[in-house]
């Protein structure tokens, strides 16, 4: 193959992350082409969140390299958007929905400068996309779990990134919100963006995503859902611990 580096949104080479002497992620090689929706699945403690965090520079890896659109994360940072886990912040913080979404603009604003009218318009627009425009001035403690997740998604949208990392955006949200999020993910894909989602629900992987990475400390498999979302790979990733509904595997198992 004659791919140049910049054809890939993300390339991870030999990434190892360790707490003390035990690796949480071990020798991960991962290539994410542009314009796909990728699910990262694996059992608890598989290092899914660690993967995202070390790519984003929130954790220091023991070894390995990360490049985003062919360049280092430092240089490509403006092209990256992030949706952390909903539980990572204090939702009783005294602020409103619009204000949280505006935080997504801080990165491109840089130091000291405050968000202006253009930023505000972008934020309102993003809130409209996630169906929250009527709640722009609402205090964040009054939001439901699904609404909180939509706010986080809107905050990532105003980052106007090319590559998005989302940590369990479907965790504990209602069916309507799940639908809304997936619509936005598909819209992002159709406008050429790349999205990497830590996902828990194996059943919805084939329906929602076109690529998947199976992770369990090591990278078990990564590629198009139709190729790698096989019962065998899932067994390797989850060990004997999870009993699979056979239809998942049966429905998606590729030809040998």
């Amino acid at each position: 193959m004659n791919q140049t580096a910049s054809d890939n949104a993300l390339e991870v080479r030999d990434l190892t992350v360790a707490y003390h002497e035990k690796p949480v992620l071990w020798d991960i090689d991962l290539t994410v082409p542009k314009g796909i929706l990728m699910a990262v699945v694996g059992p608890n403690g598989a290092g899914k969140t660690t993967l995202i965090k070390s790519v984003l520079g929130l954790l220091k890896p023991a070894a390995g390299q990360v490049s985003i659109f062919g360049r280092s994360y430092e240089t490509s940072r403006p092209l990256v958007g992030y949706v952390p886990q909903r539980g990572s912040v204090d939702w009783d913080f005294p602020t409103c929905v619009l204000d949280v979404v505006l935080m997504g603009r801080y990165g491109s604003l840089g130091w000291i400068k405050r968000p202006g009218k253009a930023d505000r318009d972008l934020a309102v627009q993003a809130l409209g996309k996630v169906g929250m425009d009527k709640l722009a001035s609402r205090q964040i403690s009054q939001l439901s779990g699904g609404q909180q997740q939509r706010v986080f998604l809107a905050r990532a949208l105003v980052q106007q990134a090319e590559l998005y990392f989302m940590d369990e955006p479907f965790q504990g949200v209602d069916a309507k919100t799940e639908r809304a999020i997936i619509d936005i993910l598909k819209e992002l894909r159709s406008s050429g963006k790349t999205v990497l989602v830590v996902h828990h629900d194996l059943q919805t992987v084939p329906e929602y995503f076109d690529w998947v990475t199976l992770l369990n400390v090591r990278c078990i498999a990564s590629g198009p859902v139709t190729d790698v979302f096989t019962e065998q790979n899932l067994r390797t990733a989850y060990g004997g611990r999870v009993a699979f509904k056979s239809q998942i595997a049966a429905g998606t198992e590729a030809e040998p």
């Binding site: 984003l56 952390p84 801080y106």
Partner: peptide, 10 residues
């Protein structure tokens, strides 16, 4: 409010 998000933005 969200220290890690801040770090992710540089």
């Amino acid at each position: 409010f969200d220290q890690e998000f801040g770090t992710s933005m540089g």
